[in-house]
């Protein structure tokens, strides 16, 4: 879903650039509460995984593919503020070194994938985790399932963000309803792939290190780790 240069007008690219810069500034403060000595190593790994995952396009229809956005996945694993930072680094490297996504469109891409993709996905994840039935003996599957639902919704949400942005600052006169239905339609299918990957990866990390999964705090009982400084959760 990387927007190239030339799609969004200069003033609106500037506007999304301001939004993205503001989001990153807030995320730098917010991530302090999410990252500590134990969880910081996971952040680098999550960004690396998102970068790798975005390279693998899967077919969704004849002549159309999709790839992982990874915002929800990152938010559930390391927290939404850190996820915004992870996606920003990924999008920065893609734009600067791989010409994947435009340079003037960097703010647009951070806004769509690093802000909308992350925060809509994380909000839906939290709602789903609360709403899903949670039998006492089997709490663990709730987290990957809710993460998958969040991931599913995050993709058409980011696509809808693009359609809205293009309607106000796009380089071609296309009716919002036309673009909206086309973008959301194809990205609902891509969202299914996002859901599967997000649920599988969150489930895998939960199986290995449940104590590190941000979104599982308070939902899954973590093993107690004993350190020199006392007992850490």
């Amino acid at each position: 879903m990387h927007v190239p240069d030339g799609f969004i007008s200069a003033p609106w690219s500037l506007a999304t650039g301001v939004v993205a810069a503001g989001a990153v500034a807030l995320a730098l403060r917010g991530a302090r509460r999410e990252l500590d000595d134990r969880t910081a190593p996971l952040a680098g790994l999550v960004a690396t995984f998102v970068f790798a995952g975005q390279m693998v396009n899967f077919p969704v229809a004849a002549g159309t593919s999709g790839h992982l956005l990874g915002g929800t996945l990152a938010a559930v694993l390391v927290g939404p503020w850190t996820a915004t930072l992870c996606l920003t680094v990924v999008l920065l490297v893609q734009a600067l070194l791989f010409a994947d996504g435009g340079l003037t469109a960097l703010g647009t891409n951070i806004t769509l994938m690093g802000v909308i993709g992350v925060w809509v996905g994380y909000a839906v994840f939290r709602l789903a985790a609360r709403a899903l039935p949670r039998p006492r003996a089997r709490q663990r599957p709730v987290v990957p399932l809710a993460a998958g639902i969040g991931g599913f919704v995050s993709v058409p949400a980011a696509a809808a963000g693009f359609a809205l942005l293009f309607a106000i600052g796009g380089s071609a006169p296309i009716a919002l309803s036309t673009l909206m239905s086309a973008m959301v339609g194809v990205h609902l299918a891509i969202g299914l792939g996002e859901a599967v990957i997000t649920a599988l990866v969150v489930g895998s990390v939960l199986a290995v290190r449940p104590d590190l999964v941000h979104g599982a705090r308070g939902l899954v009982s973590a093993p107690v780790l004993v350190t020199h400084g006392g007992t850490a959760r």
Binding site: H2, P59, H67, H187
Partner: peptide, 9 residues
């Protein structure tokens, strides 16, 4: 093994 078809956007 990634698809080379255009993505959704």
């Amino acid at each position: 093994f990634a698809s080379s078809a255009p993505d959704g956007l």
